[in-house]
């Protein structure tokens, strides 16, 4: 398999608190993998270690054949190729939806404005942000629209992989669907993704693998149906039982 992202024995501590205790996994081209687990398990920290927004204390990360954790790597250059979608959207407040998607293309990739605009519009249409919203500012958009613009911003950079950090956790329940739908479409189009989420329905319908994190470690991994319905570990079983009670079996 063509591995695009590989993490090897990632460790991270804040002070005396060990947040990550040796995480290893790979993501192949076109795959969608889901990381879930209770809060405090280290999921967000792990994602941030993958594009070095947080530097791991130990361990190595590869994007395709480049080792990101090597000191000689130009990390700004590599981050262009790793999309990142935040729980809190983090759209640039002072830019319109269109400019939010364009700015990475013009200021980072140094593309000419016309080309950047063309790519940005295409990305916005991919996430179903229609033309009437292109000139709106983030504060004028709903949460679901904001998150879809944020996905377009990542997508426009033509990334090797997109990392999603709980992309629906800050959304009102009735807006979660539109964001998940876009993510599913991307997954089906074989846009490589690594998704931290509690949305089991999403994992069951498009994920190639679920990795269950607990206390800084991946305690269980496997095909979504296996992990969700036949968990081997007690913590995993308890977690999914609670989630399914909460969501009333939503698939």
């Amino acid at each position: 398999m063509d591995v695009v992202l590989r993490a090897e024995d990632i460790h991270k501590s804040y002070g005396k608190t060990k947040v990550l205790k040796g995480i290893s996994f790979e993501v192949g081209r076109g795959e969608t993998k889901v990381i879930c687990g209770p809060s405090g398990a280290g999921k967000s920290t792990l994602l941030r270690c993958l594009n070095l927004l947080t530097r791991p204390d130990k361990g190595r990360v590869w994007l395709e054949d480049v080792e990101l954790t090597s000191p000689s790597v130009n990390i700004n250059k590599m981050r262009q190729r790793i999309g990142f979608v935040f729980q809190e959207f983090n759209l640039f407040n002072h830019l319109t939806a269109l400019d939010n998607v364009m700015i990475g293309l013009t200021k980072v990739k140094k593309l000419p404005k016309d080309e950047a605009r063309r790519i940005a519009k295409e990305a916005l249409l991919t996430v179903h942000i229609t033309e009437d919203l292109w000139n709106k500012y983030p504060a004028q958009l709903s949460g679901g629209q904001k998150q879809r613009v944020a996905i377009a911003r990542a997508l426009a950079m033509d990334p090797v992989i997109i990392l999603y950090d709980e992309p629906t956790s800050a959304l009102d329940p009735h807006l979660i669907g539109e964001v998940l739908e876009v993510m599913k479409e991307l997954a089906r189009r074989k846009v490589t993704g690594l998704v931290v989420t509690h949305e089991i329905g999403f994992a069951l319908s498009v994920a190639d693998e679920i990795m269950f994190m607990y206390n800084g470690k991946i305690v269980e991994r496997g095909p979504p149906k296996e992990v969700v319905f036949n968990p081997k570990h007690e913590v995993t079983a308890r977690f999914f039982k609670r989630i399914s009670e909460l969501y009333g079996g939503r698939k």
Partner: peptide, 16 residues
Amino acid sequence: EGQMVAARSLGMSRVS
């Protein structure tokens, strides 16, 4: 802080 983090995640340098 999210604005800076988002900018860096796009590959922008700190100065940029």
